[in-house]
C-alpha cells in the first residue's frame, strides 16, 4: 500500500498532464500543478536550514574532522539569518526593508557574498585553460580534429584571423578563416547538438513513460523494475 498509492498518484497526474498538452481546456493544469510544487518549496527552507544546523552542530559537538569549517558555516548561516529575519544591524525598525542601505544584511551581501561568488566564477577562466590544454593535446585522430577545429574557431573570432586570409580571391572565400569558423559552428557543431537534443527528447519521453507506468520505481526507494 505504501508503494501503490504514490504509483497511482504518479499514473493519474502523469496521464492527465500528457492529455492536457493536447486538450486546450486542460492547459491550465500544467501551471496549477507547479503551484503545488511551489507550496512544498516554501517549507523546504525549514528542511534545508534544519538539516544544515543539525549536521554541523553534531560535527562541532563531536569534534569530528574539519569541525572548524562547520563552526564557520554555522556562524555565517546564523548571522545572515538573524540580520535578515530579525533585522539585527538594520538602521530601521523590524518593519524596515531587509536591504535597507547600511544594514548588516545588505553589507554582508554586497561586500562578502557577491565578491565570493564572483571569485568562484572567475576561477572558471583558469579551469577552462587547464581543461583546454588537456583536451587539445593531439594524442589521437579525434583529439587532433578537435584541436584543428578549436584553432580555426578561435582564430576566426580575431581580427588577426581575418587578416591572415583576407587576400584570398572571392571564389575561394569559403576557405577564409572566419568563414570556416562559421561553417564549423553552423554545420558539424549544430548537427551534433541537434542529434544530442533529439536523443534527449526521446530519453525524456522514455523515462517519463517508465515512471508513469510504474516500471521505474527506484526514485521511490524500490530497486525493482
Amino acid at each position: 500500500m505504501k508503494r501503490q498509492v504514490p504509483l497511482l498518484i504518479t499514473l493519474f497526474v502523469g496521464t492527465l498532464l500528457i492529455v492536457s498538452v493536447f486538450v486546450p481546456p486542460l492547459e491550465g493544469m500544467q501551471e496549477n500543478s507547479t503551484l503545488f510544487f511551489d507550496i512544498i518549496a516554501v517549507f523546504a527552507f525549514f528542511l534545508g536550514g534544519g538539516n544544515l544546523i543539525r549536521i554541523h552542530l553534531t560535527k562541532v559537538a563531536r569534534k569530528k574532522g574539519d569541525w572548524e569549517y562547520s563552526l564557520v558555516t554555522l556562524f555565517g548561516f546564523l548571522l545572515m539569518l538573524s540580520s535578515g529575519l530579525f533585522k539585527i544591524g538594520n538602521p530601521g525598525d523590524i518593519a524596515a526593508a531587509v536591504d535597507t542601505p547600511g544594514s548588516w544584511f545588505q553589507t554582508i551581501f554586497f561586500y562578502m557574498m557577491s565578491p565570493l561568488n564572483s571569485t568562484m566564477y572567475a576561477l572558471l577562466a583558469f579551469f577552462v585553460a587547464s581543461a583546454s590544454y588537456r583536451a587539445f593535446r593531439a594524442k589521437n585522430r579525434e583529439a587532433t580534429i578537435l584541436l584543428v577545429s578549436a584553432f580555426i574557431i578561435l582564430l576566426g573570432q580575431t581580427p588577426f584571423g581575418t587578416m591572415l586570409t583576407s587576400w584570398m580571391p572571392d571564389k575561394f572565400s569559403v576557405l577564409e578563416i572566419p568563414n570556416m569558423a562559421v561553417w564549423v559552428m553552423s554545420s558539424p557543431n549544430l548537427a551534433g547538438q541537434r542529434a544530442i537534443l533529439i536523443g534527449i527528447g526521446l530519453g525524456v519521453v522514455g523515462m517519463s513513460l517508465r515512471i508513469i507506468l510504474g516500471i521505474e520505481r527506484t526514485y521511490l526507494g524500490e530497486d525493482k523494475g
Binding site: 544530442i196 536523443g199 534527449i200 526521446l202 530519453g203 525524456v204 522514455g206
Partner: peptide, 8 residues
Amino acid sequence: LIGEELYA
C-alpha cells in the same frame, strides 16, 4: 553519459 544516456 551524453544526453539520453543519463536517462538510460
